[in-house]
Design a protein around this nucleic acid. Structure first.
Length: 526
RNA sequence: GGCAGCGUAGCUCAGUUGGUUAGAGCAGUCGGCUCAUACCCGGCUUGUCGACGGUUCGAGUCCGCCCGCUGCUACCA
């Protein structure tokens, strides 16, 4: 079976991590955990992109050196991922020697190969901001989009990457149906960039110094994308003495390589990254998955709008699993979504409290009450409703697996909730409390309990990549090992005659009014 | 301006290559149940499927036009 390498974007630490970062990282984490649960060796990378003018400026404002500044923020990102129980195998920082040394070498190689040449970049320059802007950015008035002052046309000596040399690589990749998701992003790239004729990519700057210095011409610093994109391979040890991870997870056709990115950086991942790789004579990634944005009611989340939600109070109040579940289930991966306190609270109440949590609770309570806690052996088709239920379970497991394999974690999760809903309905159909009053119905009652126990097992295995704490509790109720293999999901006899433990409340019911107010307050103060 | 996409029940959205009475979840309402965290189950209600025209035996599903919204538009992570 193919191995898997999945990456988040490396985040730009110009400010603190917010729930948008959590969204993307959590989705990747759920995917990575799912893959591992299927026995697929999976390497999961995240990190920070720490160079550039904005970092240098923010550092100066904070009275720190750029390095001090990024050290601090990178640690905050790392801490947040620990709290969110993100299972990343590594965390790459572009200021680390393992990265910048290799980037310098790659630049030298490209220069030697004649992939890069020295030219000049012209744009609209804002002197106070020390920034270049494009025609569309400055508009007809020629005003700096940052400070609003007028800008001047200026030229700067820059290195450029020859894009036309590798255009055929991109065109070939674009014929693959799954390379870019959603496909409309690919259309945008073709219509806006490829068709009009791709310009060469500017890969150096002389107007600031906080970046990776070009050895051959030290007044230049490598400009963002050649630096940032290479993280995906430098993190694996590409170009270092020990490149075993690189050999295993990149330089190997038997690996599915997936980059999850935001729409704003899809161009760089779909067009230039394959070109860089081709120039290095390395294989291409399999998928560039462009995720949507989690927005607030007044639009895109941004520090300047002051509408960010900090994940910490949400986790503290509702738990990691609740936040992870909300993120995965509420917003379809690949689409935009909106965060509102009401939806957050109601999603948790409806799905985790009322449907899943309550089903676990009522089922185990009945097993305790009617069979002294011993799960009756599974016999299959006993009651009138058993066969239909078994079919729902099998179909939903199939749906779950095919959705999850294709990065559609939202739909995959809902497939598990289908089983939960079917379970609650099954109880109403079979009326176990009535069966219990009639000793001649004992076999039916046994079958109902066996089916309910099975549903708990199946749904908990399916939700395990999301509910990273809760599944342990549920497996504890069922008296089975936390390390239970996912493939046991098809073993209907796994729970035969097991003595369950007393259940406890998995997710306490939330009072909508009180909690909405609490969350709204969190948003206001942060 | 150009390109792409979207506009379906109060809300969030599904609707395969055009085919019988347009679906799901949530909310609302009526009823049922009692194992369970006042949970769960069932029934019911609302939709001129953005507007107008066209193709067709038949269109939410194809074509044209109009209105509204979103994204991308080149070096801002």
């Amino acid at each position: 079976m193919k191995k898997c390498y999945i990456t988040t974007p490396i985040y730009y630490p110009s400010g603190e991590a917010h729930i948008g970062h959590c969204y993307c990282t959590t989705m990747c984490d759920v995917f990575a955990r799912y893959k591992r649960s299927r026995g697929i060796e999976t390497y999961f990378l995240t990190g920070t992109d720490e160079h550039g003018l904005k970092i240098a400026k923010n550092a100066a404002l904070a009275n720190k050196t750029p390095q001090e500044y990024v050290d601090e923020i990178a640690n905050k990102f790392k801490h947040l991922w620990e709290v969110l129980e993100i299972s990343n195998n590594d965390f790459i920082r572009t200021t680390e020697p393992r990265h910048y040394k290799v980037v310098q070498e790659v630049f030298s190689k490209f220069l030697k190969q004649d992939d890069i040449y020295l030219g000049s970049y012209s744009g609209w320059y804002c002197t106070p901001c020390e920034s270049f802007w494009t025609d569309t950015q400055v508009g007809e008035e020629h005003l700096c989009p940052d400070c609003g002052r007028s800008v001047q046309k200026e030229q700067e000596e820059s290195y450029f990457f020859k894009t036309n040399k590798y255009l055929s690589t991109v065109n070939e990749l674009f014929t693959l149906p799954k390379f870019v998701y959603p496909e409309s992003r690919k259309t945008e790239m073709i219509n806006n960039f490829i068709k009009p004729g791709l310009e060469d990519l500017c890969v150096s700057r002389t107007t600031f110094t906080w970046g990776i210095q070009i050895k051959e011409n030290p007044k230049h610093v490598i400009y963002v994308w050649l630096d940032a994109l290479l993280n995906y391979i430098t993190a694996l040890g590409y170009g270092s003495e020990d490149d075993s991870l690189f050999q295993k997870f990149w330089n190997n056709d038997d690996v599915e390589i997936i980059h999850v990115v935001g729409a704003d950086i899809s161009r760089f991942h779909t067009i230039y990254w394959p070109m860089f790789l081709k120039a290095l004579n390395l294989r291409e990634p399999d998928r560039i998955f462009v995720h949507g944005l989690l927005m607030m009611k007044d639009g895109k989340m941004s520090k300047s709008k002051g509408n960010v939600v900090s994940p910490y109070p949400l986790i503290e109040k509702y738990g990691v699993d609740a936040l992870r579940y909300y993120l995965v289930r509420e917003v379809t991966f690949g689409q935009n979504g909106q965060f509102t306190p009401v939806q957050f609270v109601e999603r948790i109440n409806n799905d985790l409290v009322n449907s899943y949590g309550n089903l676990v609770n009522r089922s185990i309570s009945m097993i305790n009450k009617y069979f002294d806690g011993v799960i009756p052996a599974f016999k299959g088709k006993v009651t009138l409703f058993d066969e239909a239920l078994d079919n729902v379970i099998i179909n939903s497991i199939n749906n779950y697996e095919s959705y999850m394999d294709d990065l559609h974690m939202t739909e995959g999760t809902d497939a598990m909730m289908d089983i939960v809903r079917a379970g609650n309905k099954y109880i109403d159909d079979t009326l176990p409390w009535s069966l219990a009053k009639d000793s001649s119905k004992k076999e039916e009652l046994e079958s109902v309990m066996a089916h309910l126990a099975r549903i708990i097992l199946v749904t908990t295995l399916g939700l395990k990549p999301i509910l990273v704490d809760t599944y342990k509790k549920v497996f504890g109720f069922l008296n089975i090992s936390e390390d239970l293999n996912y493939e046991e999901i098809k073993n209907v006899h796994l729970l035969d005659n097991i003595k369950v433990n007393a259940p406890s409340i998995l997710f306490p019911r939330l009072d909508v009014n009180i909690e909405v107010e609490a969350i709204t307050e969190m948003m206001g103060t942060k």
